[in-house]
Design a protein around this nucleic acid. Sequence first.
RNA 1: GGUCCCGUAGCUCAGCGGAUAGAGCAAUUGAUUUCUAAUCAAUCGGCCGUAGGUUCGAUUCCUACCGGGAUCACCA
Length: 600
Amino acid sequence: MNIEQLLKSATAAVFTDLFGGEVAESAITINQTKKEFEGDYTIVTFPLIKVSKKSPEETGTMIGEALRQKLDIVAKYNVVKGFLNISFTDRFWSERLAELNAEDFNALPANGKKVLLEYCSPNTNKPLHIGHVRNMLLGYSMTQVMKANGYDVTTVSIYNDRGIAICKSMAAYIERGNGATPASTGIKGDHLIGDYYVLFGQIVEEQLRAMHNIPADQNVYKTLGKDKEVAEQETPIFAKAKDLLLKWEAGDTETLALWKKMNSWVYAGYQVTYDMMGVSFDKDYYESQTYTLGKDIIDEGLAKGVFYKRPDGAVAIDLTPDGLDEKIMLRSDGTSLYMTQDLGTAQVRYDEWHMDKMIYVVANEQDYHFKVLKLCLEKLGKSWAEGIHHLSYALVESPTGRFKSREGKTADADDLIADVLQIAEQKTNELGKVDGFSEAEAKALYKTIGLGALKYFILRVNPYKKMIFNTEESIDFHGHTGPFIQYSHARIRSIIRKYASDVNTSDIHTALQPTERELMLQLYEYPNVLRSAADKYDPAEVANYAYNIAKLFNKFYNEVPILTAPTQQEKDLRILLSKVTGDTIRKAMVLLGIEVPEKM
RNA sequence: GGUCCCGUAGCUCAGCGGAUAGAGCAAUUGAUUUCUAAUCAAUCGGCCGUAGGUUCGAUUCCUACCGGGAUCACCA
């Protein structure tokens, strides 16, 4: 039952009876009643007075009285200015509780729609950083949210495994690697390759210093008056990287072997991080296999007159009528661009999956790219293009500004995770929370809590807003945090364990305390939150909801005796309410990829 | 310069047409013979960037401006 819809229809019907005129249901706004007023739901009567021709108070009172008579679930009402506050009966809420327990609101029914969701998609020349963490959390959570909304979701990732970047790592490795491997150095594969990427930059600098006699205390690029990207091109090491790129493209066996070996180390390294984060993909794509895609689409676009060939031979599209610019689709030498590949890859994916929606979880610096991508596909007449959605997320910043890829340990995903786990362990021990736990159980708990803190800290922020990542705060376990919610769940489970007998799940009738009503009302909102999170592509809505439920429960827990309730009926009801609350917290947290412990 | 995104408490964030704008952190105080105090309750803290407009009603929608960021490559 959708209560708000029911109230709307009833209000519209009652309104016509009372005042004659019709009122559109869309003109009726229904909100949850604000805390400081009595009531469950509030009907705003201001918009209705034009037709009712009575004051807001009078209109509200008349509708309230009519609703009370018409619907036996309405216990009482009160009117404050243009607000009609409706209270449902205790019986009504008790029935909802039994209904919540019986129905599995974790998933809305399957809707037969297919979603392809791409996320993570790293460049294989460096380890994952905090931006990827936000990406993975959003991608994973969005996957769960869409599934819970009845979509059939397939997750994919595309590895940018070729190009000049990886060749730089390779060049540095050949120069100074001495055959190092992850096994020989004990360094995680992706970090090892990342180290050589960093080393490449250092070699460039060394060589430039030598070439131009720049003393060690002077900045190379400032002295040269050139950007790094320009200056590096004159160095031998860059020439080597470039040569590797050409050899790679020519299919040189030795180059390909090294490239494969180094990439395999990276993937093994990533896998460790993925496992820790709990993410996985149904299918991996590799740029080395897709980078030539899209030529067909270019031809198609030319044939359809959507694209045109410029005098210099490049293929372009004029998007100035759409407020954008002229965009090159294919280089004058006929080779692919990022856009070319993405057009091609999108088509290939559609041919394979026939998805209704394709969600790309990619940082907001690519907003323009995805706007162009979608627009091009639409102009090419691809009906499926409208299902494309760029889930854009903003930068994660450190309290002192932007995280630079090479400065500060906190930007690195693995370091971040390690920090959070270490602090979770320390704090959990300090509080004696693992007394009586086996070593394995304790370890599992540290992980649950540490990752819960990290994941929640990032997911609770709306994706398109840039967020400040403060390590101190991310591992805070008080207040609006993952561990607070986990703790609430553990408390609930503790009560259920102590209760020891089967929970009475029948429809229990007893007078309700205000906190009980409030909690029930919020629990009943769960499916709405699910829908909204999917519609807005925003897991933060689920995160904030879980917090609100946990907070309400703790209030209830402190105010009302559960196991020692005065009557059996009250006890039964409170146990059931606790159980449903715990279930709801768990379901919501599962959508965020956060585990919830039985004890902590 | 064009386009897009963001400006809400000291800090981190909710709210995005409705009532006296909410949480958490920080600061101060109180609650444990009682179901896990990683809890609860209370105090303190706001011209919702600024100025106009639309509306019965604007933090929320529109316009302009001011701050911050991104983007406008035959890079990815």
